[in-house]
Design a protein around this nucleic acid. Structure first.
Lengths: 193, 193
DNA sequence: CTGATTATTTAACAAATGTAAAAGGAATTG
DNA sequence: CAATTCCTTTTACATTTGTTAAATAATCAG
């Protein structure tokens, strides 16, 4: 049963970029599952990120503290990549943590052997290049929304783009994700909806 | 003279990730120069981005209009990559433009033949994977600063990180880059400096 | 089920940032 | 170098968002 989950995951990946059966097997052999209970950390602040995760089932977030306040930087749902890129790609410790929002199962791929696979399997490197490109585009779009859209516009566009987030995720996390306080988000919700 | 500039550029690239002499030559043959006068666009709004640029000499920015107001999303200086990634990686038209801030020379690499080079030259694909990873990390860091840092904090950290920007770039561009108005930036400058 | 905890909303006020308009400086052009 | 245009600052006021605290509402554990 766990193996079929892995196979589904590999299928999902190969839709992003075609990979050979051997490459599929090589990735398959690196994948393992990690279960994390609600509100527990998968990765803690201060660790250097050396693992790539995808959400298999559940939801997770990346967060950090700014002036003792919890700030959510990113949400991940089924099949979503969740990495602390600024640590993984630089080798520096991360000031961010990864936390399960519900009881969540992650697929875990250790970075070092994965990067070694890149040497033998050009198609795997290409796949992960495209995975990173997607995340990059998502981040650019979020940057644009934070740069010059009002809190209300940002909230409305989140509802449109990911209704599930607004329905299922605690508002305190959503507020900081939008770059505002809970109180401010409550006000916005009171005016429209 | 132009050829030595190209060679310098290729050297710069190969410091990011080692590439073979053949790969260097293949990239070399794809590179060309484009000169753009101050305040002129290198790429216009509405175009789909099909070219990768690096700044050879001068400076440039990516901008778009939000409610008829000019918003600078990104600055690029010597050796910096400048692409409208959300268009290049998705094939959709971009609502952003690339503009020379001074008279500027760009190195231009057409995306299609470059992506074709990826097939024969694994090391070139790796190089550009790393280039994109760097941009991704930069964008994540900017996202963090916009998400929960005050305008004043953002301005101060820009001074620290890129004093040249604050010294050389018109303030009207810097203000929107920081996600604030010119008036607000003037106020911040009046209080500290 | 009940008390305790946690999440969300509301209220009142403070601070930050936006808007519009005018004034002063700097740069550019004829 | 004079005139024009563009850039930056300042002012006054409006709006948005933040802060603190209290009141509800929802969830969780025993």
């Amino acid at each position: 049963m766990k193996d079929t989950s892995k196979e589904h995951f590999i299928e999902y990946l190969s839709q992003i970029s075609q990979i050979s059966p051997e490459s599929k097997e090589a990735i398959f052999n690196l994948c393992s599952f990690v279960s994390i209970n609600k509100n527990k950390n998968l990765q803690s602040i201060g660790q250097t990120c050396k693992t790539i995760y995808f959400v298999q089932d559940g939801a997770a977030r990346i967060y950090y503290y700014k002036d003792d306040k919890d700030v959510t930087e990113y949400f991940a749902f089924e099949n979503d990549l969740i990495i602390r890129a600024e640590s993984l790609f630089t080798g520096k410790p991360s000031h961010k943590a990864i936390q399960a929002i519900y009881d969540t199962i992650f697929i875990s791929i250790p970075a070092k052997p994965l990067f070694e696979l890149f040497d033998q399997h050009h198609d795997i490197e290409r796949l992960f290049r495209k995975v990173v490109e997607r995340s990059y585009v998502d981040t650019i779009n979020r940057l644009e929304s934070l740069q010059f859209y009002s809190a209300e516009e940002r909230y409305k566009s989140l509802i449109e783009k990911s209704p599930t987030v607004v329905r299922d995720i605690p508002l305190k996390y959503i507020a900081s994700y939008l770059g505002i306080t809970q109180v401010s988000l409550s006000r916005i919700r009171a005016n429209f909806s």
